[in-house]
Simulated assay, not measured.
Amino acid sequence: MDETTAPTRFASYVAVGDSFTEGMCDELLPDGHYRGWADRLAAALAAEDGGSGFGYANLAVRGKLIGQICDEQLAAAAGMGAELVTLAGGLNDVLRPGCDIAEVEARLAAAAERLLATGATVVLFTSTDPSRRMAGSARLMPAIRRLKAFVEGFVAAHPGAVVVDLFSAGCFDDRRLWAEDRLHLSPEGHRRVAEAVLQALGRPAAFDWRAALPPAPPAGRWRRVRSDLRWLRIHVGPWLVRRLTGRSSGDGRPAKRAELLPYEG
């Protein structure tokens, strides 16, 4: 964007996706929902016009695959006619063995094209790179890299689409940007993603979201072992049970903001 060109102001915003966009593991709000980067983004956009009448809906639900996102959220999002839509999905598919990455790409493209057809600016994301922070993630990298290239190619070919590149941001190698389950962002991680989206939309930088955190005190070997055992027991075990029984953490869960309503912070 030309430095002399003012960034587009938005009067309404709809968030579509899974737990990443729902805001899992950010701070809890009084109503029991997580805050999340999308809420933080909505707050910043609402503040640009004094918050008067800025509309915000968040249709994202944890655990959803890209097909479920398209089937359960897309029609509602397109029907709201929002000026800005964020669309994130596909990583839950990649985490499952036997993922059909071509099908993920096709569903993601169809969703983005439908949203662009409404006249909205559509923001897509590349996944963070888990290879340096999460053991066992090497098997996921071919699909993650392919999905990254797909998203970048889609955005290059579609005016009105914007990409937020999280993959190249080395700060996400730091476990302090992640919650205890190692799959969802910590509050600091959510704060940085919100800022990344704002900058991708042409807003001036409030801070360097890519910057490394100050060095952390070294963790002793046994502390790391205890942390890994706790992670396996509390998070990996239940996740495997859900996979084996065909259940999802989002089953029966409604969206936290199912209607496009004025954002009140």
Score class of each variant (00 low, 15 high):
A120D: 02
V94R: 01
C99K: 01
D100L: 06
C99R: 05
L115F: 01
S137F: 02
G119M: 03
R96E: 15
I101A: 06
R139H: 12
A117S: 07
E105P: 00
L115W: 00
T121E: 13
R132I: 12
L91I: 14
G119K: 07
D100W: 03
P142I: 03
A117C: 03
L108A: 08
G136P: 04
A102H: 10
D93E: 09
R114W: 08
L108D: 01
D129M: 11
I101T: 11
S127T: 15
V122L: 09
V94A: 04
A120Y: 00
C99F: 04
G119R: 03
P142S: 02
R139K: 15
A111H: 00
C99G: 05
V122K: 06
E113R: 11
M134P: 08
L108E: 02
E103C: 15
P130E: 04
T128F: 13
S137P: 08
D93R: 07
P130H: 02
A106K: 14
S127P: 14
A106P: 05
R133T: 09
D100H: 04
A138Q: 13
S137M: 07
A102T: 13
C99P: 03
V123P: 06
A135Y: 12
D100G: 01
S127F: 14
P142M: 01
N92D: 10
L140P: 06
L124Y: 06
P97A: 07
T121P: 11
D93N: 14
E105V: 06
E105A: 08
N92T: 10
R133I: 10
A109G: 12
T121N: 10
L108Q: 03
T126E: 11
V122S: 05
R139Q: 13
E105L: 08
M134G: 11
S131R: 15
E113D: 15
D129F: 10
P142C: 02
V122Q: 04
C99I: 00
T118M: 07
A135T: 14
A110Y: 11
V123W: 08
L95D: 10
L108F: 09
T128Y: 11
T126H: 10
A102Q: 12
R132G: 14
P130R: 03
T128D: 09
A135Q: 12
R114H: 08
A138G: 13
L115E: 00
E105Y: 05
L124H: 04
R139T: 13
T126N: 11
L108Y: 09
I101C: 08
L116Y: 00
R139W: 12
A120I: 05
V104T: 07
R96Q: 15
T118L: 07
R96S: 14
G136M: 03
R114V: 11
D129G: 11
I101L: 15
N92F: 10
T128L: 08
M141C: 04
